[in-house]
Structure formats: structure tokens, C-alpha cells
Design a protein around this nucleic acid. Structure first.
Lengths: 195, 195
DNA sequence: ATGGGTTTATGATTTGCCTCATAAAATAAG
DNA sequence: CTTATTTTATGAGGCAAATCATAAACCCAT
């Protein structure tokens, strides 16, 4: 997360995206840095049969789609606004200027990438060698670590979203979650909310 | 890749690892930066039943296991030397000094992370929404991009390695590769070598 | 409240990949 | 050149998760 003031200083614009509006299209070139001011964005892949895989969900203050900016390759996934969203949008060249001028921001940026990498390595591991329930727990542990506090952790995810994040089908997730609840591994506070 | 001279200047040591020697253990803290001088290293996960998933294979000049150094979390996978390997080993604090002192190296470092992220996003997409043959082609395309030239691309990977990199079983890969060869999508120059 | 849309739930069936078993090639080692 | 080891090959069978179908529960706007 780069401060809004700094972004604006380097010429960032503020863009609005309606819910369901596509912000980034897979296989397109990467020309801009995006950071969420308020809202929610997901990056996803879709195959021909309409099966979706969600690479990540991003909230206030988070950026997304940075790797292709640095590596000069095409976007491996698309981004869509989940809710009405306000975004900072900064050109690639301006972002580079900003990073060069501000080493401490640069470091933060690199750290954010490192975290993302960790997440992907974790999910890859889960998908490749662990069964459905384990994957769900791993996802929740990760999110807890990212967004939660010691005492309480709440995150709103539908079972469909969990499925899309862990490469499974809704029905499978529903059954697995139910089993985990019975085993006491997981607790549902109310609809969609985990502790 | 950071130049060996620079690494040594900051106090890096050169370590030798025999084939099959573990260099990094999953879930351990990250204290060192590793870069291959000569040799081959793979990062992998193993589940209880012995099923393996290979997060990446690294060759001369490449570094591995950096994310936990920056993000301060545990290694999500283990690293093992595939062949006898010489490594530069540099402490976390010294690496940070090096990066702060050398912004252009810092940038290269960040770009390497970005590429890794791209690879993981790609493999995740493949594993989640694409069938075996497609995954294999995606892997080969990626490697071609990374190591190949226009005219010729050769990379030595056994079918077992392809399986471990794409989260499948050997038998599945063997059958898929055979099919792809028949369809002309893939060409085997000789054993283990793809064009 | 009431109706429409989303989310959760659950059973029946199918299927793609894994698993198991066994053997033939290919490569390496002595 | 012979033997040992690794890699490739192939069939048969099993199984976990996907798919399909249908319905109940829940949420939300009017």
C-alpha cells in the first residue's frame, strides 16, 4: 500500500468501477498500477467451461496486478470489481519514478510481493497435496493471519468464494465445511462469518 | 541473480551441498539468502502419503527461498540439492544492507520475485481449471520462455519431474505426453528433451 | 409481509485421475 | 558387455470429487 497523497503527487487518477466491472483483462499488457481506495476487487481465471479460479481478493488499501508491471509480461488473470470501487491508477513509468524516489516505499512494495508469493506457494501446496478440508483450513489460517486479531477473526466469504479460492466445487466445500464444524475445527458465527 | 563478487563483499560464504542434501526445511525460520553458484536445487512439498509437489527448480545463478526473508514468515516448502551444488549463503541482515546500498540490485531482486509470482499464478490457473495435457504445455511454454531461444529449446525433465511440477502422477503425464506427441503439439528430440 | 434472488443443503450418478501391478526400454555403472 | 537402476509404458480397477438435479433456508428490497 502506497499512500494516496504520494500517488496523487505522481499524477495518479482516481477511477470508479461499478460492481462487476472488469478492470484488468487477462493476456493484456500491463500499463498501470492499481490500488484500491475503497471497495473490493478479485483477480480470477475462467476456463472455457466457465470454471473459475480466484487468484486473490483485494480490499481497501491493497494493490493488485503489479507483477506484470515489473516483469513485462501479460496479465495471467483478469480483475473485476466485486463491489463499487474507487481506485488509484498510476502509469507504469510514474510508478517507477515513485519507487526510485522513495526507497522505503520500494521496500514495502517488494514485501507485498513476497507475501503474495507466500500465499500462492501455500495454495499451490494445498491444492496439489492436500484434501478439501485441509485446503479450507489453510485458506482460513492465511486470512486470519492477514486480517484477523488474536481474539476475533471474521471474514465474509461465501462457500462459493472459498471454492473458487481453493480450486473446488461449491458442493464439495459445503460438505467439507459441515464436517469441519462437526469436528470442531471450524466455527460459523453467522452466515458467511468464520471465527 | 546478484553478482558473486558483490555477495562476497558483503560477507557471503560459499557452501557445498551434496546431491539429495536438504538446504532449507519447511516451516523453519528464514535467516539466509541462498544463490546457486553451480548446481541445481528444487523446492518442494511432501504430504504424509509421500506425494510431492515441486514449487520450482533452480539452476546456476538463480536464488531461491527469498520471500520469507522479506515477509518474516516460515518457509512454505523445503529445498534440496538435486546435483552436487555450490551456493552463496548470505545472512538476512547483510542481504538487506546490500539491497539498501545497491538500488539497482534491489530492483533486479524485485523483478525476480515478480517473475516467480507470474509462474505461480500460471501454474495455479493450470492446476485449477485445465486438464493434464494443457498443464504440461503451459509448463513447457513457461520454461521455453525462461531458458529457450527462438530456434531451439531443450530442457531435461523426466516425466516424473513434469508430474511433480504440475501436480499430477507419472502415469498421467506419460499418457498425456504420448497423446500430445501424436497430435504434434509436442516433440521429443531424445529422451527427456523437448523442443 | 411477500416475493425474488442468492446461498446452503443433500442425494444420485458419473468420471477423470490416481492407484496398483507388471513389464519393457533406456541409461548408468562396474 | 553385463548387470543394476532408472525411466517409460500400459492395462485394470477404484475412488474422491465433480457433476447433475432439486429443494430448503436465508437475505433483501419493495
Amino acid at each position: 500500500m502506497i499512500s494516496g497523497i504520494l500517488l496523487l503527487k505522481y499524477g495518479a487518477t482516481i477511477e470508479n468501477a461499478d460492481a462487476s466491472e472488469i478492470i484488468i483483462s487477462e493476456k493484456k499488457r500491463a500499463d498501470f498500477y492499481f490500488q484500491i481506495k475503497i471497495g473490493e476487487v478479485k483477480m480470477f481465471n475462467l476456463n472455457e467451461q466457465g470454471k473459475e479460479f480466484v487468484q486473490g481478493i483485494f480490499y481497501d488499501g491493497e494493490s493488485f496486478g503489479e507483477p506484470p508491471l515489473l516483469g513485462d509480461f501479460k496479465y495471467p488473470a483478469s480483475a473485476v470489481a466485486v463491489k463499487p470501487t474507487e481506485l488509484y491508477k498510476l502509469s507504469k513509468t510514474k510508478l517507477f519514478e515513485l519507487l526510485v524516489d522513495n526507497p522505503e516505499v520500494n521496500l514495502k512494495f517488494t514485501k507485498a510481493l513476497a507475501k503474495r508469493l507466500y500465499y500462492k506457494a501455500t495454495i499451490l501446496k494445498e491444492i496439489s497435496v492436500h484434501p478439501p478440508e485441509h485446503r479450507i483450513l489453510a485458506l482460513i489460517d492465511f486470512l486470519k493471519n492477514k486480517y484477523g486479531t488474536e481474539e476475533l477473526f471474521q471474514v465474509e466469504l461465501t462457500r462459493q468464494q472459498i471454492a473458487d479460492l481453493t480450486g473446488q466445487r461449491v458442493e464439495t466445500v459445503i460438505r467439507a465445511v459441515k464436517q469441519l464444524e462437526q469436528e470442531g475445527e471450524l466455527k460459523l458465527i453467522k452466515r458467511k462469518v468464520f471465527r
